[in-house]
Nucleic acid binder design. Sequence first.
DNA 1: CCTAATGTCTCTAGTTGCTTGAGGTTCAAG
DNA 2: CTTGAACCTCAAGCAACTAGAGACATTAGG
Lengths: 137, 137
Amino acid sequence: MFSIGDISRRTGVKVPTIRYYEQLGLITPPQRSSGNQRRYSAGDVKRLAFIKHARELGLPLDAIRELLRLSENPGELCADADRIAAAHLKVIRERIASLQGLERELQRIASGCSAEHVRDCYVLQSLSDHSLCNEEH
Amino acid sequence: MFSIGDISRRTGVKVPTIRYYEQLGLITPPQRSSGNQRRYSAGDVKRLAFIKHARELGLPLDAIRELLRLSENPGELCADADRIAAAHLKVIRERIASLQGLERELQRIASGCSAEHVRDCYVLQSLSDHSLCNEEH
DNA sequence: CCTAATGTCTCTAGTTGCTTGAGGTTCAAG
DNA sequence: CTTGAACCTCAAGCAACTAGAGACATTAGG
């Protein structure tokens, strides 16, 4: 039996976040001590670690909810889990591509300013005037 | 004199977002028609376009607020504007690097599953067991 | 000039994934 | 038995909007 602080240290998930996950229904309400404090089992720790790991990989909570649901039915086909992972990979790749566009543009703008005063600042001019840009965004 | 819908179409910023920016003090409250509707000047359009462009580049609103303040004092040194742009570029690069780490890991996980059933699913196993990972995250 | 359609007004609440705080109770060590 | 840390609930705050309700304004067509 672990207190909420115990599983927080074990999983790296902060205490208020654990309570928040419980509120969302991602983890089931654990047993309580006689004084109404949460007492977790080893299974609860595993489940929370799963959530933590998935969050570190950037998966949104509703995808995690679905993965948890799947992992509770070991006999089901795992195509759904693969699909969720693949969809998320796609999202991440799109996000990277978009950020790389911004990176190029911002790099160009930020390195293009050789002015001293705000009046001639290329950064500010670029922001004012979209036509100074190379790419779409 | 432009209505809020006019400048929305001109800048691509949605109507409720314009009102939201006014509420935050990013744009000054415009004049009003006799019937209490907002009426904007050409200067307001420029300012809003500036904000839009900066948002498209991913700058947070408080950085934009600072850039707007700078651009109103043309005699000041523009080092601050350059610094804001450079700092944001750094943030973007870090975000890209972090996402690329996730991409590699998720790619590995997602392509490593050749199981049929959830019980043997490599995706779910990887999420349960952090030690199956190659990199930190 | 009237009417209908569209635009605009304010205000509130919802989104995602938490974090922070207030005000109070319980637990564990000494 | 006391003290200090950990825990409890509930509410609100963060970024950056978006969505909806219910009411008023504007404008184009007839």
